[in-house]
Design a protein around this nucleic acid. Structure first.
Lengths: 241, 241
DNA sequence: GAGTGGTCTAGACCACGGT
DNA sequence: CCGTGGTCTAGACCACTCA
């Protein structure tokens, strides 16, 4: 148990230990971690304590359990859960992942707001992407994406044909960086002429704007993204307690 | 254990049993439920099982535990948590509950959409409220509120002075109906002239619209509400996993 | 059939709150 | 001080998966 603070409950320290190991990719997303019995031995704690630590990580969405098979490092369901705000459905109500059309990819210097979000120095080298998301050929979303060039530089040399509709699997394969979670902020804007034009919306149409910061398992920021879409067809549901 | 389905795990059936008792107000919000030891005896299960059932209800926000004091039926924090989307802050960043100015209160026949949301027959008698929410005298939110008249009829005779900024405590005191949770849907509209006028916004300004269905501990719908506010100053943050 | 997680038991001891 | 919930132990048996 590497955790220093012995005042914390055993199961908490165990949780932290496992979370750190996962962040260090000791077990990669999709892989099984050791069985509960093995963890009991290795950490010299009782099954109930191991179980509680795993319960926490399952609740946090880090692990996933399957009876009879094992406990696995969860690979976030980018095609579903990460479309928190912008959600598109076909005629049958099935979720649809919009196609991607990259308009621009280049290295740039990080503007102040981007540098701050990514915890970089202003002017640091960043990979910049500008793309459209389309459904049945119609533009539904415009996205600006920034990434730390020192960690995602490989994307500058990746052929654009390799960019599928989902970027996060690409980050994992080409850059070895796995996205664990994200923070989003929603707002409404009006009068962004370039976005209106790309989305083929009339002038003055309100736009929903989502700013997303994607983070790794260790909590470091990986990607900052701004997406815009038509506000008048936008819906978001949630539950409050 | 009143639950019929013996295939469910013990702790699940116990959870359901306790949830039902709470919905029936066997213990009221703010009151303590029996201690874990008493529940062990009463249901003839071991402490671990009781604990797991209580864990579930705590996670769901139904119960609240205090070491050394007991386990209590949680009184939802209407002044904080239920302002999920619309959140107002003063100059110091402190949350502010807007004042309430009721424009209209009367009995009406439920329109189709309201009847459907409240699970009533179309044309049923409902209590209708129309009010403005103000901060420092400035209108920030417009609200339309509908309630089943058979359960909330008392509100028609309650003096308007008794209506504070928060309605849910009023429902509990005057009608004996406690709100446990709510479902909200956010959308953006434009061109609602009456709302623009009340909120003193220029014509064509986009508005954020929140539709909220408030539910009791037993899951029955209690109140349906539509709120509108300025979209361009609106912000909503969330986390995704 | 061997191995996995899922459920459940029946305690022990500790930390905290109120008296 | 007593009673509360919080932590932890050391098992048992079951249900499921996969070879």
């Amino acid at each position: 148990m590497t955790s220093v603070d012995a005042r914390l409950p055993l199961y908490q320290r165990l949780r932290d230990d496992l979370a750190t190991a996962i962040a260090r990719q000791q077990w990669r997303p999709g892989e099984a971690i050791p069985t509960e019995a093995v963890l009991c031995d290795r950490y010299a704690v009782s099954p109930g304590t191991v179980r509680k630590a795993l319960d926490l990580l399952v609740d946090e969405g880090v692990l996933e359990r399957f009876q009879g098979r094992g406990t696995f490092v969860r690979r976030p369901q980018f095609d579903h859960s990460l479309f928190r705000f912008f959600r598109f459905e076909d005629a049958n109500g099935e979720r649809v992942v919009p196609d991607s059309h990259i308009l621009l990819r280049e290295q740039r210097q990080a503007p102040a707001d981007v540098a701050k979000a990514l915890q970089l120095a202003e002017g640091s080298a960043v990979v910049y992407l500008h793309r459209l998301r389309l459904i049945a050929g119609r533009a539904v979303l415009e996205e600006y994406i920034w990434l730390d060039a020192t960690r995602f530089g490989a994307l500058l040399d990746t052929p654009l044909e390799a960019f599928g509709p989902l970027l996060y699997p690409l980050y994992e394969q080409h850059c070895g960086e796995a996205v664990a979670r994200a923070e989003e902020q929603l707002s409404v804007t009006q009068g962004a002429a370039d976005s209106e034009r790309l989305l083929q919306l009339p002038a003055g149409q309100p736009l929903v704007q989502i700013e997303r910061l994607a983070l790794g398992y260790d909590g470091r920021p990986l990607e900052w993204r701004r997406s815009r879409g038509d506000a008048l067809t936008f819906r978001y549901r949630t539950e409050i307690r």
